[in-house]
């Protein structure tokens, strides 16, 4: 474990806490893409298949449980909770995310570290996570003004993988056997997708203005 990875995990955790805060405090999920949340739940469920068979550390197991439980809780809130589900922008959240799932699975069948059940699903979860934010970014552009908590949520979500890139660079130089090309390249793509969001987030912070993405 290095400081970059720990900071990345904490940033990821903060993004989830900010989203839970938004939903709990405002009893609303306006501006949040249910499709992106469903994709994240799928990412965690397919990445942490070794949750009960493999053990790395208490920290690793606890964080996996938190990520799985929180992503499922958010999907439940947006689908089932009688008050929250009413504020879901169903007619704006129309990204066909099934294509993202199919593309990631096909790529995982072609590009993997080892042709084994868990490795294929691990690669699938890495590819899917890289593009899972797309429905959310499209929804932000369509819904015009973005409330603060939603903006912070997307910012921390993008920042966490950027910290992981620093972690991979660090491990590349310190861990001689380290080879994680699938996660590295995928992480770079994932972080690049946030580039324009980061720009508009910075502008809104600098001008102390409402976050606004161009349509």
């Amino acid at each position: 474990m290095n400081i970059f990875r720990f900071a990345g995990d904490m940033t990821h955790l903060i993004s989830i806490l900010v989203l839970l805060l938004k939903i709990y405090a405002t009893k609303s999920c306006s501006g949040i893409s249910l499709k992106t949340q469903e994709l994240y739940a799928l990412v965690f469920l397919t990445r942490y298949l070794d949750l009960f068979t493999g053990f790395i550390s208490i920290y690793n197991t606890v964080m996996k449980l938190i990520f799985i439980a929180s992503s499922l809780a958010i999907v439940w809130c947006m689908r089932v909770h009688p008050i929250v589900r009413r504020s879901y922008d169903k007619d704006l959240d129309t990204f066909r995310h099934y294509f993202l799932v199919a593309a990631s699975f096909i790529l995982a069948l072609l590009l993997y570290e080892k042709f084994a059940f868990k490795e294929i699903f691990w690669a699938f979860s890495i590819y899917l996570e890289a593009i899972a934010i797309l429905p959310q970014l499209v929804l932000l552009q369509r819904s015009g003004n973005v409330d603060n908590l939603t903006g912070h949520y997307v910012f921390f979500l993008g920042a966490y993988r950027a910290l992981y890139i620093l972690n991979w660079i660090y491990r590349y130089f310190t861990d001689i056997h380290f080879s994680r090309w699938i996660a590295c390249v995928s992480g770079l793509v994932q972080t690049a997708l946030y580039a324009d969001f980061f720009y508009y987030y910075y502008i809104s912070w600098r001008n102390n203005a409402k976050l606004k993405l161009p349509a």
Binding site: N167, D175, F178, S179
Partner: peptide, 10 residues
């Protein structure tokens, strides 16, 4: 060292 299949990252 990092072995293939041992994913120690989240």
């Amino acid at each position: 060292g990092e072995m293939v299949g041992k994913h120690d990252e989240l």
